[in-house]
C-alpha cells in the first residue's frame, strides 16, 4: 500500500518538476510524455534530454534506471522509448 502511495506522491511532485523543467527544456506533450514524470522523481529532466542517444543508448539507459528503481514496467518502457526517440534522438547518437 505505502509503495503505491509513495508512487502517487512522487508522481505529483514529479508532475510539478516536469512543468518546471518544461519551461527551460521543452517536453512535448505527445503520447508517453507523462512517463517522463517517472524520471524526474529522481533527477532533473535536463539530465535526461541532454544525453545524445540513439535506440541502443536509450534502451540501455532506461534498463539501468529501471535497475536503480525507476518505476517503469516493460510496457511503459516501450512507450517511453518511442517518446524519447521521437523527440530526443540524436542522429549521431549511439
Amino acid at each position: 500500500m505505502w509503495r503505491r502511495s509513495a508512487l502517487l506522491g512522487a508522481a505529483l511532485v514529479g508532475a510539478a518538476w516536469s512543468v518546471a523543467s518544461a519551461q527551460a527544456t521543452p517536453i512535448p506533450q505527445t503520447p508517453g510524455w507523462e512517463l517522463v514524470m517517472r524520471c524526474v522523481m529522481c533527477h532533473s529532466v535536463e539530465i535526461a534530454v541532454q544525453q545524445r542517444l540513439g535506440p541502443r543508448g536509450w534502451s540501455d539507459t532506461l534498463d539501468r534506471m529501471i535497475k536503480y528503481g525507476a518505476p517503469i514496467p516493460p510496457p511503459d518502457k516501450d512507450v517511453l522509448m518511442v517518446y524519447l526517440l521521437r523527440h530526443f534522438r540524436d542522429p549521431d547518437g549511439r
Binding site: 505505502w2 509503495r3 502511495s5 509513495a6 502517487l8 506522491g9 505529483l12
Partner: peptide, 8 residues
Amino acid sequence: SAKEVRAA
C-alpha cells in the same frame, strides 16, 4: 498524501 510520502 503528504503523510504517505513522508512515511515512504
